[in-house]
Design a protein around this nucleic acid. Structure first.
Lengths: 146, 146
DNA sequence: GTCACTGCAAACTATTTGCACGGAC
DNA sequence: GTCCGTGCAAATAGTTTGCAGTGAC
């Protein structure tokens, strides 16, 4: 069973890059976050762990983590870029509440299958896809009715 | 048959806002673009039409056009925000080529139906959804093979 | 006549980059 | 020992905002 760190080390070696303490710490922290996060949130988390890694280093490390398949950008936000780790996770889609910002993750095999079928129809080779549904969650709907 | 201008005027009136020449011109130009565009592209287009509307006014008008249901943001780009008009268009999804940037638009009733079903399952009231598939188009695939 | 709208330039925010020092290999 | 990586601060790029004059209603 290959670990995320092995995967990242292999990727770096292949690219002739170094596995530094900073990169190790960022990797560890990214894996510890089980929600979507942005650069600032990761930065704050690192601070709490008594790490003083700079934002610049975070910005320079993220492309490496993405390229190595450990994390990816989510497409949900208009402003700051958001990320989530994907190592060991199956692909899933998102439902986002416009009022409270809550995110529901789901996976629907039938939707996955139909997407593949659409790609086939156009001779398109898919690499990734993102489906986000925005609207109002049950709780916010009932609040709005009041 | 209600026109886009009627729709926008009604929206503005409802909000106590004014239908200015600038807003009229921006509306007209947005409707004339049949591809995704960003603020700069619209700005350049306005320039070609001998309009000297400022970027600030464009930025201030877009939320109104979105809120009134005439256009929307697309979720495709990492950097600049992209838009497309939706007035008179059925919802569609996107397939984007990572190499040439080409966009294929498609609509699959079955996928639409399944999305509604997922929302129902979670008691979620959908407002909009965006599905983007990224990968390589037929042409770029064959080029890469060479 | 009032109050929303506009252009301008300055401000802001997220992200990127040049540089000189330091450390992984 | 060689480059790559780092923090810092400055630079960029997209977007937002304060202000004073203008015009739709």
């Amino acid at each position: 069973m290959i670990t995320a760190e092995d995967k990242f080390r292999n990727y770096l070696k292949m690219k002739g890059l170094k596995f530094t303490p900073e990169r190790k710490m960022i990797l560890k922290t990214v894996l510890s976050l089980h929600t979507h996060f942005d650069v600032d949130q990761l930065y704050e988390r690192l601070r709490k762990e008594n790490s003083d890694i700079s934002r610049a280093t975070i910005y320079r490390t993220f492309p490496l983590l993405i390229d190595s398949g450990i994390m990816k950008e989510t497409l949900l936000c208009r402003d700051k870029t958001k990320y989530e780790h994907i190592f060991g996770h199956k692909h899933h889609d998102h439902i986002i509440c416009l009022k409270c910002g809550r995110v529901i993750e789901f996976r629907d095999e039938e939707i996955e299958r139909l997407q593949k079928a659409v790609c086939k129809k156009y001779g398109f080779k898919p690499v990734e896809h993102k489906l986000g549904i925005r609207g109002y969650c049950r709780e916010c709907q009932s609040k709005m009715g009041e």
